[in-house]
Nucleic acid binder design. Structure first.
Lengths: 324, 324
DNA sequence: GTGAAAGCGCTAACAG
DNA sequence: CTGTTAGCGCTTTCAC
């Protein structure tokens, strides 16, 4: 920048101001400076800039599984919203491992990130302390609130109720679930929701028909198998998410169990491949693009100075396809 | 850091050395410093560090479509390889738009990134000049070499030959292709490869049976429809990638065209959903994890000082499933 | 084994 | 409308 200033015969402050537009610069001067910039192929060093201003222009998106298209879509959406503001998104895949999650949070404060959008999987509130101490805004995308952080959360009650109703209307009575791991942050709120609904609707979700595992295809297959080996086996299975449901379908095919003939299957999220499998997966759609948009908005408001905690609810919808 | 130094009664240089281990520090001193660090909840500011050292610790991964699981997997793999070295991966989704691609490259030099791994879609060699001028190592993952950059490239010849052989052995003679857009970087090397193979095997890939479009599901559907509306319509269709092939399957179902009964379909990459659709997609597997690993290795070598351009070839394999 | 101090490239007062 | 200048927080000689 000093080079540019010299070449243009101005001070480096002026160069800085033509770049940032933070104060008026004479048309003539601007032209000369811009010419010099082009000449020398100069590019601002954003590290120096951020060091000086105390704020970087990168936002971290921390997710448990980037190969789940739901999160890939979330990433794309967030990036699209933040880009026009000059904010960059650094996508971090934690593989649902707590130490990885923590490592990324630590990195976020080391890098003085502008903000963090995170779907915590095994983190606890305490893990966020360093972030708030550093004054880095956090938006949590999860079913449950998380300390001081802003929250984007699904309203899936109506959708789940509808799903459950469809299932019972079809005469199914033995409802089971392949839920998330027991040590996940907040347990598994989707399980709790289903439980509550089951009570309301006069159905049961017996504890022994709830199996648990990671949010992976393999775990879905394993969980489904365990369910099917029970003497009192379910005739409808809700899944923690679509990836798990796909795994269940793998196993059903392997075991020669008919879906939905023998067992109804309900996914969650409507990840892109839910409509790809055959039969098509009936699921509860939680629209990733909307989640990304909401998270972006919350983050931007924080950056603009909002201090009060805020929650945005994104409505989920029941999507009837071929597995119920 | 000054605070820590004061609290520990040492100089900030010593604190720095405790953190980096770049010179021996007395056991006693180290303990005191570490206590102070813990006490104050101090975290290094990597921006300041990078400014000082002139190198950041983030690597950009620039891809055309993050919602294509192939790239999501690539991202995961690259991240896994680079993480242990303290390098972070910033994933950038360009949506195959040239201006976005350029914007990310510009950002890479502004941020003085440690390196860039990119699958260029519409970029040309010139777009990389600023990067090399800034001395930022670039690894290109593509079918064709790209200026000075290191290259990870598929060897898909044998696999494609096998695919083509299967198709012709099944008595198919009218080979078509849904290729990438005409203005994509390097045209469509997969198309060229198929053309060459067709000649070798005494089959034809007539120009009119080649349609073009983006690497999207919609474009795949549109391309397949155009093909099917021709009077001389293909009985086997190769696709630019699996996403395109899935789009073609959508359309086939819509039009009541049997796959593989009426038309054989061959994808490319073996993205995760290739085995999800029914019938399962026959494809040419290009293993994303291997690509990520290779890219990481190339990048690391460069960072370690290698100067000569290098190419790593990753072998692709024919995967016979249900669409041929 | 430790400290002092220069300076990375930029921004934002402050002064003119 | 423009210039001067003081750091942002760190690393790294150089000196002890």
């Amino acid at each position: 920048m000093a080079d540019v200033a010299r070449a243009a015969g101005v001070s480096s402050a002026t160069v800085s101001y033509v770049l940032s537009g933070k104060r008026p610069v004479a048309e003539e001067t601007r032209r000369v400076v811009e010419a010099a910039i082009a000449d020398l192929g100069f590019t601002v060093n954003t590290m120096a800039r951020s060091l000086r201003t105390g704020r970087s222009n990168v936002v971290a998106l921390v997710v448990p599984d980037l190969s789940n298209p739901f999160y890939a879509q979330l990433a794309a959406s967030l990036q699209k919203e933040l880009r026009p503001l000059g904010l960059h998104v650094m996508v971090c895949d934690t593989q649902a491992v707590r130490d990885e999650e923590r490592a990324f949070l630590r990195e976020a404060v080391q890098q003085r990130f502008a903000g963090v959008v995170i779907t915590p999987f095994r983190l606890v509130a305490k893990d966020f302390e360093a972030l708030s101490a550093a004054g880095i805004p956090v938006v949590v995308s999860a079913d449950l609130p998380f300390g001081e952080a802003d929250l984007v959360t699904p309203d899936a009650r109506a959708a789940m109720r509808q799903a459950l109703t469809e299932v019972t209307d079809a005469g199914r009575r033995r409802i089971g679930m392949i839920a998330g791991p027991r040590d996940a942050t907040g347990g598994d709120p989707r399980l709790e929701l289903l439980r509550g609904l089951a009570v309301q609707l006069g159905t049961a979700l017996p504890g022994r028909l709830v199996v648990r595992g990671e949010h992976t295809r393999e775990a879905g297959a394993a969980g489904f198998e365990r369910l099917m080996r029970m003497k009192y086996r379910p005739d409808a299975v809700f899944c923690a998410n679509d990836v798990v449901a796909i795994g269940a379908m793998d196993k059903a095919e392997e075991l020669g169990i008919g879906i939905p003939g023998d067992v109804a299957l309900i996914g969650h999220d409507d990840a892109s491949f839910a409509s790809l499998v055959r039969p098509r997966l009936t699921t509860v759609r939680y629209p990733a693009p909307d989640v990304g948009r909401a998270a972006a908005r919350l983050l931007i408001e924080r950056l603009d100075g909002r201090v009060a905690r805020k929650t945005v609810t994104v409505k989920a919808h029941f999507v009837a396809r071929g597995t119920v």
